[in-house]
């Protein structure tokens, strides 16, 4: 039996530290974040850049850019249904920025939706497949690629905090 489970049961048995209503409301709202008919894009390793010790470090290493006052995380790559979505996130001044690229080019009518549990912003990818969104609240974020004639492809939710 895990100690955390024992401690959790003790707190529940005593009615101590009950779940805040805001947490329950957020949980109920997650239902609206489903992507019906969507295809989940799982993480894939990025090619190892020269001089990097491992692809895992390349994919998840966090680099603090103190000079800019920002905390920047590495590029994450997701893939499904023949589509690759690269995402890079940063938190600056308490707001999250998300930039990325879809490849191969998804077509002129494609849309990129960058979602947090609180807000979603839609972008038309550039001619090279790039997209960017700023001013999001830090926390959980996911990217959905909508292409006419294809099911939407959505990335795993990733957690971004300063």
């Amino acid at each position: 039996m895990r100690e955390e489970y024992l401690l959790a049961a003790l707190r529940m048995g005593a009615g101590a530290d009950p779940v805040p209503e805001g947490v329950s409301a957020a949980a109920r709202a997650v239902f609206g974040l489903r992507v019906p008919g969507g295809v989940p894009a799982g993480p894939v390793d990025l090619p190892v850049p020269p001089g990097t010790r491992s692809s895992a470090e390349a994919g998840t290493a966090q680099t603090e850019t103190a000079q800019a006052g920002a905390v920047q995380t590495g590029v994450r790559r997701f893939s499904a249904d023949g589509l690759v979505i690269d995402i890079e996130t940063a938190v600056t001044g308490g707001r999250m920025e998300v930039a990325g690229q879809v490849s191969p080019l998804p077509g002129p009518d494609a849309r990129i939706e960058v979602r947090t549990p609180h807000i979603a912003k839609v972008r038309v990818p550039s001619g090279s497949g790039h997209f960017a969104v700023a001013g999001l609240p830090p926390g959980w974020v996911s990217v959905v690629c909508h292409r006419p004639g294809h099911p939407p492809v959505f990335t795993r939710w990733i957690h971004v905090r300063p």
């Binding site: 955390e4 707190r11 529940m12 947490v23 974040l33």
Partner: peptide
């Protein structure tokens, strides 16, 4: 139950809320 488990790790209320929300998001995906 999820909240109690997250707090049992000594997380702050904000981090525990993120952990619980993360579990629900994992269920969706």
């Amino acid at each position: 139950r999820m909240w109690a488990v997250a707090r049992a790790f000594g997380l702050s209320a904000a981090d525990a809320a993120d952990a619980v929300q993360g579990a629900w998001l994992r269920l969706v995906e």
